[in-house]
Design a protein around this nucleic acid. Sequence first.
DNA 1: CTCTAAACGAGACGGTACGTCGAGTCTTCTA
DNA 2: TAGAAGACTCGACGTACCGTCTCGTTTAGAG
Lengths: 202, 202, 202, 202
Amino acid sequence: MVTQQAPEPARRGRGRRPAAEVRREVLRAAGELLLTEGMAAFTIEKVAALSGASRVTLYKWWPSKGALALDGYFDAVGPTLAFPDTGDIAADLTAQLRAFVHLMRDTRAGRVMPELIGHAQTDPELSALLRERYSAPRRALAVEALERAKERGRLREDVDPEVVVDQLWGACYHRLLIPDQPLTDEFAEALVRNLLAGIGRP
Amino acid sequence: MVTQQAPEPARRGRGRRPAAEVRREVLRAAGELLLTEGMAAFTIEKVAALSGASRVTLYKWWPSKGALALDGYFDAVGPTLAFPDTGDIAADLTAQLRAFVHLMRDTRAGRVMPELIGHAQTDPELSALLRERYSAPRRALAVEALERAKERGRLREDVDPEVVVDQLWGACYHRLLIPDQPLTDEFAEALVRNLLAGIGRP
Amino acid sequence: MVTQQAPEPARRGRGRRPAAEVRREVLRAAGELLLTEGMAAFTIEKVAALSGASRVTLYKWWPSKGALALDGYFDAVGPTLAFPDTGDIAADLTAQLRAFVHLMRDTRAGRVMPELIGHAQTDPELSALLRERYSAPRRALAVEALERAKERGRLREDVDPEVVVDQLWGACYHRLLIPDQPLTDEFAEALVRNLLAGIGRP
Amino acid sequence: MVTQQAPEPARRGRGRRPAAEVRREVLRAAGELLLTEGMAAFTIEKVAALSGASRVTLYKWWPSKGALALDGYFDAVGPTLAFPDTGDIAADLTAQLRAFVHLMRDTRAGRVMPELIGHAQTDPELSALLRERYSAPRRALAVEALERAKERGRLREDVDPEVVVDQLWGACYHRLLIPDQPLTDEFAEALVRNLLAGIGRP
DNA sequence: CTCTAAACGAGACGGTACGTCGAGTCTTCTA
DNA sequence: TAGAAGACTCGACGTACCGTCTCGTTTAGAG
């Protein structure tokens, strides 16, 4: 008679519950609240109410609202890290960027990420966690792929992969965070084309 | 017949003050608070207290905290829009990006802008205003410069200037908003070099 | 703001209007607002909006919200002072009290009067006006009738009519203002019976 | 050896204090404010400031300003209910009324009660509480005394004690709430005399 | 018949109070 | 003893109405 999703207010007894169980419930509630209502409505109070945990417990384990939100995010979304390498760096980059565009534009998780990044601008705690657990690994993956391409002689020797990452993914984040222009597949393709071939004319 | 003159001007009773004067004070206070304490500590209440205006007045003139912050920002910073055109597109872009990097890294205004962009992620009001009054005009300026370069035959015909903007300034915003990597002059130079010459090898 | 059943918000030109016209409009609006919404919702702001007058004009003519309300009351209700004298003091008092009970219980004006009296407890301005224009004249009327009855030998010589008024109308106001017991015709009749015949037993 | 009259604004930590302690402080502050400044200046905000409690706490425990004022009143004044019965109903009523007149005329509590009754005219919450906790018990006491007198044969059989109460105490409240005439000892005596002996002449 | 002073409406302003929300802290109770 | 319950302070929010004051307009009345 267990294993329910608990649509009820998660009323429990007053005493102690196993830490693991509490944690699980909290993360589930945090993730759901975040993906459903967004970061603006994401509140420690609401997470406590939804999870059946007490606020004090949340304060004990998560140093800030941002940290809780990020944990909730990963609990709901999962890592999803992959960077297939076919040997064709142009194709690989384009594929990867198109997947990224799709993720950000068409999924709840993608729509929430800008809000997390936004909140991190005034929350150093979240900023550090976001870099450590989100952006750094993804950046590393791309850098590795670019390094491999360099070794294969597909990229110029003097190119810094870190800069390239900013000119591809950073360009996407730009359109995501400051939406003057739409984030499209064509955009993703143009990014790779521009950068590989250069836009200058001799 | 006591027509007393009462030359003191500090007789600010309860009644109305000229709207312009109040506005000026408010914007000054808002700008100062924003640049001094940052967006996290930026509060309508504090702006009211600092400016001597009442909260109601602020609510009447500014629809949201974000709108007030942005107005305060521009009041303190000024427009500062310029894009010198020397005919050498590479040099112009590099100069412009280096100035941008300097602004964002070394000035209070630059340090605040990411916070405004961050807040805009959960404040549609501010998001719209930011696009309209900040990012769009700046983007337009860069696009125009690139168009001119295209007409002069310095850029490939099939290049979309809008995409280029994201690959230059967007890359900088990326490092600003998700600071995995530092924002340096070398970075600015590499951006232009990569993009103009291309990073691929035949 | 408040969308009354008034078809238009009484939009006029901006300049000076005849004082009499303004006064008339204001009193009409005040009376209607008072009888419709009660004293709790009676606001100078609303009267101004409903009447098309500016708040400053109201402040100029009426020293307090209570004064305005009372003027509005009389404008809507009228004086309605009468104390028929048939020679039969018992019948006259009973008739008068029954009319009073009916007025207070079954009309909007009656339902508002307790609120005015209530407000007067913390508004000396209104308290004085209420005595002067409402209670004193009514009390005087009753006292006169009782004096006449005394002269006709219908009442004991040593009876103070002022006290009798409190034991008749005052008793009604008591049930009106502190409604532990209902205000009924039977009550009105019992008041007169008790007082004329006495309740003691030799 | 403290005798400190609390000059400090009751600075406490941020966490929880025992509810009982807070309640006590609040009631003390409410009672004092009410008796000192009267109902017109009685404000939830001021009670909070005086008691060192936060407004939120007051809103949690008291549904309205009226309810808080009444609780403060009883906390400061105490119940003080008594109706001595000597067997001489005339003397007992007179004594009781004189005591009431004295209370209302010469004490801070008495001067506040009309304001509470006044506020109750537009605050159903307070109206109910006032009836329940103030007027009804006092009325019941008087009714019981009158019933006893009836049983002893001192009053006519057909007299309704409830009506008598309105013709004695109600008359006093009348002079209290609509002060056309003064509230004096002579008045109190005349009330009993009139009613017991009757004012009519055969 | 014109000119001016008074009165008006519009509405912004500072201020007090309201009632609410969320954050973070603290105490007491329970499993 | 960890967790839950829940009450508390604090800061901020957005709103209502108050009484005051400025501004521009209109009209009545003086010249």
